[in-house]
Design a protein around this nucleic acid. Sequence first.
DNA 1: GTTAGCACTCATTCGCCTTGAGTGCTAACA
DNA 2: TGTTAGCACTCAAGGCGAATGAGTGCTAAC
Lengths: 345, 345
Amino acid sequence: MDLSERKRKILQAIIDEYIGTAEPVGSRAISKKENLGLSSATIRNEMADLEEMGYLVQPHTSAGRIPSDAGYRFYVNSLMSNYKIGMEAVAQLQALLKTRVSQLEKIIKYAAAIASNLTEYTTVATAPSVNDSQIRKIDLVNISSHTVMLIVVTREVKSRAINTEIDEKNCEVLSRILNSKLAGKKSSDINFEMFEEIREETEKNTSLDSKALAEMIRFVYDIITEDSETEIYVNNAKSILHYPEYSNVDKAEKILSFLEDKENLRKIIETDNAEGIKAKIGKENDFEILQDCSLVSVNYSLRNGSGGRLAVIGPKRMNYSKVFASLDLISNEIDKILGYYMDGS
Amino acid sequence: MDLSERKRKILQAIIDEYIGTAEPVGSRAISKKENLGLSSATIRNEMADLEEMGYLVQPHTSAGRIPSDAGYRFYVNSLMSNYKIGMEAVAQLQALLKTRVSQLEKIIKYAAAIASNLTEYTTVATAPSVNDSQIRKIDLVNISSHTVMLIVVTREVKSRAINTEIDEKNCEVLSRILNSKLAGKKSSDINFEMFEEIREETEKNTSLDSKALAEMIRFVYDIITEDSETEIYVNNAKSILHYPEYSNVDKAEKILSFLEDKENLRKIIETDNAEGIKAKIGKENDFEILQDCSLVSVNYSLRNGSGGRLAVIGPKRMNYSKVFASLDLISNEIDKILGYYMDGS
DNA sequence: GTTAGCACTCATTCGCCTTGAGTGCTAACA
DNA sequence: TGTTAGCACTCAAGGCGAATGAGTGCTAAC
């Protein structure tokens, strides 16, 4: 599928124009762009060719052309220009991410927010998954006469307030036993039998009511083995309403519903773990509701192997070059920070 | 402003009808409701009276009437019927809240989600504020060769991953000193001078680089004194799009933007700490953008004095009786659970 | 190979008319 | 004196056709 230089230029001009206006592009509009000195009639001939080749479609006879999915695909693969993000924006981004570096859990949340600011599209991101990391410490702290806070430290901190009658002294003994048996282990290596030992040993060394103890152990087991449900962040979903494509409120509502369901989001964002920035254009998306959208995503990773994904969702006629540039910038910055921060093990 | 029994009935019928249909209500529609055997002409006369009194307005001469803010206010204060929530829904709610009880922090999140399911309107809720509670424990855990997890336990658990070179042994010493100086204190009683002592004592007892130490102390100070930013949960914002009042996409987008800004939410939800369920109808809302909406809210509280607020936001013609009943139910259930759970101190 | 010119198509807009829901007023009725 | 039937009036909404104009494809000339 080779295109003449002229066809490439015309196709590019049409798509650029359409991205800006969301209106079918006519031959005259293109011919008036000074850079190629061609009359509208010539452009018309070329456009007819491009339509035949499948890159353009005509919504109706007397309208201009709009890009087809294939047209966008060609544009993304070989036509789009390099977008240059302003130095100030870059500096701002770096500064902002740096101030958040002490709240590692949240860095992706901020990154996703920044991405949606930069691009003005909806963004979806998964927090870095920290499954299966080593247990560093388990702690039981009495916070009121019958509430104990259970804390498990791995790479992250999980906690649970538990309603129980275990007193401070017994808490101490129990937490000492828990640590001696479990600290240093990976959560995937832990099974319920280990807790049987813990129960026995604790019963020997404390005056604990065996029912309260069993309950407590159950909680510890749960908190350790539960999949730390990786958070998923959505930003700027409402931007959908901006696009004429979704001026139909019903359609807009459907997609907003879709974006509210974390399950869906997980699916669309986790299908692809490819390196680098990937675009899914229109019908390339598995979900029917996204077939008028494009999804551009990138994964970031920590040196220890865990990572996550950050995606931009917008209309098919999104500003691809800007989106690609933004994601590139952001994922680089994140990799820098996280790589440094989380390295070693 | 006394209304005859007949006027009350007519006003109630009009508002009930309008809540269901969102269309101006005509005299004929009311006269056909069997319960008052009056002709449309008679109703017309009464409606004219009610309009003069300010309870109804006419969008244009040849249309029916719609309730004014004052009309809704009268309806809420003295007209609306008692909505009875189905037993199954009540049982479901109780069951659901109970299963979440071990994740206390999240109970309000679930309660807000339930409220928006029950009412089908947008809900906004603030998590229980746990400011100014006593520090129970401070911990420093090495999670990698140069990352230390800082953990502060009050009624909740706050944590921060910190990039530093402090090794395990020094961590232990430092955390012992921190606990001896700070445990048991309220975070509001803590000032930076105390940390000067801590710094001096630590320097005496460890080989710590004084710059790393100063930095670490700064983090501890920050995490303790920072306002634990009470989370704020929004559910079902998109339900706005359902109402014909917001079929205008621009208007819908404005209000969705408004609801995305946590600052705004905080303001609308925290203005009123009154006991019981309160409604703000139309222009009674301070924010101009909400002047076509009503906001019904309730506060829940723990026995220790902290608490939060849960609000339903919908169109002025919301189903007030259902919303009131739902909030009443939910806040009672929450109070039961939290009261039991968090009591003592 | 390029372009000017022309006939043709078709979505969009505008004005006009019709329709119908609803009102207020008046006069008659109970 | 309160209620109701009847009638003239108002006005938003919807249907319809003409006008508009953006765009095309094709042809003939350059």
